[in-house]
Design a binder for these strands. Structure first.
Lengths: 140, 140
DNA sequence: AAATTAACTTGTATTTTGCAAGCTAAATGA
DNA sequence: TCATTTAGCTTGCAAAATACAAGTTAATTT
């Protein structure tokens, strides 16, 4: 895995040091917006990430505390990739990117519909998705 | 200039096809948050972008309709880089990145202060900055 | 027991980045 | 006015990152 070097104390720069590449946010999108959580799931996404790059990004995101590996409940051949609070808190960034793309780029019809929902109730969507991703602790 | 290939119809992916690299958003930050607007201004930023990369990114961002070149009012040796509406509309993305960095990364004290202001009144800040960047047409 | 699936790793070609130097037109200073 | 400096790049090359194809290992399915 490549070592992250911090270019400055600027918050924009520091964030980009971690997630400022063409793939990291797509993995985060897969987990948060498409419910994917396995290696092959990520590999299967439309954008066709190369397998070595995926392995690298997963290691990076785990190192950065954005993802963590867990044992898969259905099979021990599988690994379940879970997003942390630090990762969930990138959701507003994703949503703003979606709103911008909706305004200026050609995107799919269902993406446009989602953008409309974000505009209607951004906070509601954030809470809904955050809640669905949280590690549900057993109540006692 | 490298040609942008669209990887999918996903809005996150499409946005990253344009601004998903380590430098583009820093140039946009320089213009919107630091009031820089010349080639040497951008070159002077803390992160020390290489001059050929800067030239490439400026061409890209202009091609993407995010920036445009204008003649500098003080000198014709200088070129004034201006941000378009399409670029200004990336401000919410920048602000969310700042909020995330403030929450999870070590950043400068003044950046923390700015993050606090964003939390207090995000819309107000967006309007303030947007307004300050708009091309002021002469009233008649 | 053989074939398939899941999660990677390895090798290599191609592309992108980083760094240093050079270039041209405009502005400035002596 | 003439030399120097400034502004905005371009070029060449080495180093790093990415893409693509193939191979590996353990677990699971047939």
């Amino acid at each position: 895995m490549k070592i992250i070097r911090k270019r400055s104390d600027c918050p924009v720069s520091s964030a980009l040091d971690i997630i400022g590449d063409k793939w990291s946010l797509l993995v985060i999108r897969d987990i948060m917006l498409s419910g994917k959580n396995t290696y092959n799931g990520f590999l299967g996404s439309e954008e066709k990430i190369a397998t070595n790059i995926l392995a690298d990004r997963l290691a990076m995101l785990e190192y950065a505390g954005i993802l963590r590996k867990e044992r898969h409940p259905q099979s021990k051949a599988k690994i379940l990739y879970r997003i942390s609070k630090k990762g969930i808190d990138l959701l507003p960034v994703l949503l703003e990117l979606i709103l911008w793309s909706d305004k200026y780029l050609p995107i799919s019809a269902q993406a446009r519909q989602f953008a409309r929902e974000i505009r209607k109730d951004k906070e509601g969507i954030i809470k809904l998705i955050s809640g669905s991703l949280k590690n549900k602790k057993k109540r006692r």
